[in-house]
Amino acid sequence: MLTIKNLHAEVEGKKILKGINLEINKGEMHAIMGPNGSGKSSLASVLAGRDNYTVTEGEVWFNGKNLLDMAPEERAREGVFLAFQYPVEIPGVSNLNFLKTALNEIRAYKGLPALEAREFLKLTKEKQQLVDFHSNLMNRSLNEGFSGGEKKRNEIFQLAMLDPQLAILDETDSGLDIDALRIVSNGVNKLRDAEKSFVVITHYQRLLEYIIPDFVHVLYNGRIIKTGTKELALELEERGYDWLKEELHLKESV
């Protein structure tokens, strides 16, 4: 579904990604871990198409289409969803109106008619329950005055509503207390199915106790330096990243 080949990217002339290779198939859950500044969030931004990132080398294919050729909204309509690390606030635009616009844009792209108000509200209710999202947040302005946890839950709620093929969760666990973490993780787990793939970016193994990954990748200095299964995450939790860095330097100096 998603193929990343030798991806290089920079921000303001600074090299951030230095040759990422990654293959994600339908229904897989990939976790990307790594120390601060290793390029985890940059990878998410590049995939979503944030315009201050320049791709200097490499390719990204999504369902056979060149993702890098697409504007951010096209990528979204094709089925790439980014749950933001820091969701923005948009005063005056209600959560409901925003979601309706987004959903109908995506539907129009797929040649589907806009959802009628009744169907839309029904869907909203259903998904609210699925991810345990408070209905009183629906009519509020988008993320305005939401607590950190509410914002993250809103991201997962939007994920449920827009039903993408690929969801990238950028440090969705940061700033969540243990209860909120459990609610968010439960929501994600309920959304898992054979068609949908996930990339979960996180600092901590904690999240992966709730969301069990099929693969764990360690990103360091703009490259994936190790890939394993969920056991790798446990090992990282225990030993930190230093041993991997040393391993890498040993390899490189040989």
Binding site: P72, E73, P87, V88, I90, G92, N97, A102
Partner: peptide, 30 residues
């Protein structure tokens, strides 16, 4: 006084809404 930020536009883009519609949405809300 506020400014329509690139962050806000990008956020809406990422949900499938193009930039023009995004501005319209924000302005109409405003």
């Amino acid at each position: 006084t506020s400014k329509i930020g690139e962050d806000q536009i990008f956020y809406l883009n990422q949900r499938g809404i193009d930039s023009e519609k995004a501005v319209a949405l924000i302005v109409n809300g405003y």
